[in-house]
């Protein structure tokens, strides 16, 4: 949680400077932060619970057995599908990926799983549509999917 301390320190310093310079602006800033927080909270809680439920059902050993060394193209498809369900923060994704590799999962499959976990999310698609409109939301998810597959392909060529 060291990076939390850094973030809090930076935020506190800027908030302090802002308060000294202009109380009204600072009040407006805090108010808009609160509004933003309140707006994402329902979706955030839902996605978090969804991820928790999914991860408790799909244990690392189960995933590893699906996307093992010899899983080939089907393994690639499975990891892409699992990864595209929900967006998971990177501080959960990398430890999970590490556990999977240690349990015998193949590296390209883990690469596509991690990359889609961080960038492609059907669970947050409605939230994304509300923000950017559905055409942009779909296009962004598709582009992230393409990126994840190409990335896994490069890993497959270079590292296996």
């Amino acid at each position: 949680m060291a990076n939390g301390i850094v973030l809090y320190t930076i935020a506190a310093v800027y908030l302090g400077i802002s308060f000294i310079k202009d109380k009204h602006k600072t009040k407006a800033a805090v108010l808009s932060s609160w509004k933003m927080f309140r707006n994402v909270l329902p979706d955030l809680l839902a996605i978090m619970l969804f991820v928790g439920l999914t991860l408790s059902l799909l244990t690392p050993s189960l995933i590893s057995s699906i996307i093992g060394e010899n899983s080939g193209l089907p393994g690639m498809v499975y990891s892409t599908i699992i990864g595209s369900i929900a967006i998971v923060p990177s501080f959960i994704v990398f430890p999970l990926g590490h556990t999977l590799v240690e349990n015998g999962a193949a590296l390209p499959q883990v690469a596509v799983l991690m990359s889609t976990l961080m960038s492609v999310g059907l669970a947050s698609l409605s939230m994304e549509q509300k923000t950017f409109g559905h055409r942009f939301a779909y296009a962004r998810n598709v582009s992230a999917l393409v990126m994840s597959l190409l990335f896994a392909f490069i890993i497959w060529v270079v590292m296996t």
Partner: peptide
């Protein structure tokens, strides 16, 4: 819990960016 710890400073910074 991780999220609730992480989010307030980020949103405060974004709010300040919005104003300043």
């Amino acid at each position: 819990l991780d999220m609730l710890i992480l989010l307030p400073p980020i949103f405060i910074l974004v709010g300040l960016l919005d104003q300043w």
